[in-house]
Design a binder for these strands. Sequence first.
DNA 1: GTCTTAAATGAAAGTCTTTTTCAGTTGCAG
DNA 2: CTGCAACTGAAAAAGACTTTCATTTAAGAC
Lengths: 146, 146
Amino acid sequence: MAADFDTLADHLREHGHKLTQPRRAILKTLVAASKPLSPAEIQARGQAFCADLGLVTVYRTLEIMADVGIVRPVHVVDGCHGYVLATPGHTHHVICERCNVVVEIAGCELGGFLERVAQRTGYTITGHWLEISGICADCQQHDDTQ
Amino acid sequence: MAADFDTLADHLREHGHKLTQPRRAILKTLVAASKPLSPAEIQARGQAFCADLGLVTVYRTLEIMADVGIVRPVHVVDGCHGYVLATPGHTHHVICERCNVVVEIAGCELGGFLERVAQRTGYTITGHWLEISGICADCQQHDDTQ
DNA sequence: GTCTTAAATGAAAGTCTTTTTCAGTTGCAG
DNA sequence: CTGCAACTGAAAAAGACTTTCATTTAAGAC
Ligand SMILES: [Mn+2]
Ligand SMILES: [Mn+2]
Ligand SMILES: [Zn+2]
Ligand SMILES: [Zn+2]
């Protein structure tokens, strides 16, 4: 979670995007979140920081932030996509099936597997998307006491 | 690919569901597909087998088939959910960025990696979703001759 | 086979999500 | 400061999915 506001804001600017009030609000909202948020949730929470934050702006900003690599869309069982902050670079996420809490995984150890896939299929591999689901320590605890 | 029509149809009946013409059409469509299909795609392709197959019926039928365990909703990066027949084992797909042709990868070799993730995060890992993108042999060929 | 009935169907309307359009506003380089 | 492209929110449009309802159909009983 090297996700501090200023680093992420700089990252946006370095890619030639303006740092506007709505964008600050969205970034603050994501920094404060511990689980993937839908665009509507981001708007609702973000209005604490920018009173008239529009939903259209949330959609547009998430697209930019995903392009720039500071947020990532993740699959959420009900309602399709949620968005979480991502460390720029290549990482993966583990999502709790019960409470949706997300942990970011730094290293990607798929290299060997992908090479074998390339050989077996004849494809040149250009990218991959991996999401892991599980049950977080807290939710396991609650199961035990039930 | 133990996905033959009759076995799947029986499976539906055994769970107390009628085997109607629209449902036959949807099942045939899924049996013939090599990639996840959206409800709209299933309707379009299914009309070859049942001319006035309605989209509402596709949604309702997919829900039933998922409950009964013969189809599985999968996350598709653009457009959220697609549906595939539930293959018994666990497989992944490699998709060509140019022509969208899909190849299924039989083995899943993520076990070791997932174990390390479990230890590092404290999560019990219950599932994962992996999509690999690349360029198929044919499309590489065409690049060469351009 | 015919009858009966609950399950299933498609059209239409309704709800929710996401995108497009556009006139006004704002961040920021000069 | 100033100027101007980037950015904004409201409104409308487009899409995705669900609910409602009158009609049809599959499948078991006779
Ligand atoms: Mn999804
Ligand atoms: Mn990776
Ligand atoms: Zn949890
Ligand atoms: Zn190809």
